[in-house]
Every structure is written in C-alpha cells, then in structure tokens.
C-alpha cells in the first residue's frame, strides 16, 4: 500500500505542519483514513495528503554544508558593533 504524508493546517494564522503519515490503497481511502486517524478532534481546518512517492527529496549530504555557512546567517552584530563604535567616537 502506498504511504501518504499528512499535513494539517490548524485554525488561525499558523500554516500547514507535517502531522505524520498513513498507509492506504488509494487517494479516496487515504482521505477516509486521514479523517479518522488525524482529524478526529478538530486538529485541523485544512488537510493535505501527499503520496510519499511524489515528494521530491534532496540529498541530506548536499544539505550538510549549508549548516556551516556563517556568511549566510548574518545576524547584524558586526554592523551594530561598528555603528556603536562610530557613535561613541562622535562620527555618526
């Protein structure tokens, strides 16, 4: 049986989140099982079901390097430090 990934959107401003997965023979039964297993108590106002085979998956190894790219995660502290120094020196 194909595996489906379940995404739910709670009421309010929050977007869809990944709620889990389920196995079902086809889309129609996946929708029925989703309702009875993931949205029994109003956990979502919208639901997406995606057959796992249709998900484009990226290679985790290719993602590893992005964790070490400090230049891509500028928190502004260097700029703030320089501006502070210039303010104190009376040049700003």
């Amino acid at each position: 049986m194909p595996t489906y990934e379940v995404f739910l959107k709670p009421d309010g401003k929050d977007g869809f989140f990944h709620a889990g997965s389920l196995d079902a023979p086809d889309d129609e039964m996946a929708a029925l099982y989703c309702r009875e297993t993931y949205i029994r108590r109003g956990e979502g106002v919208q639901a997406w079901l995606v057959a796992r085979q249709h998900i484009v998956t990226l290679d985790p190894k290719e993602l590893e390097v992005t964790a070490h790219r400090q230049h891509a995660s500028n928190d502004g502290s260097v700029v703030a430090q320089r501006r502070r120094a210039r303010r104190q020196a009376g040049t700003e």
């Binding site: 049986m1 389920l22 196995d23 079902a24 029925l32 099982y33 009875e36 297993t37 029994r40």
Partner: peptide
C-alpha cells in the same frame, strides 16, 4: 489487519 483500519474502526 492494519493500523489505519484499527484506528478507524475504533473511531467509528
């Protein structure tokens, strides 16, 4: 027979 059916039956 399988988990989804189990939960659905209980819910019904």
């Amino acid at each position: 027979p399988f988990l989804e059916e189990d939960l659905t039956t209980a819910s019904i």
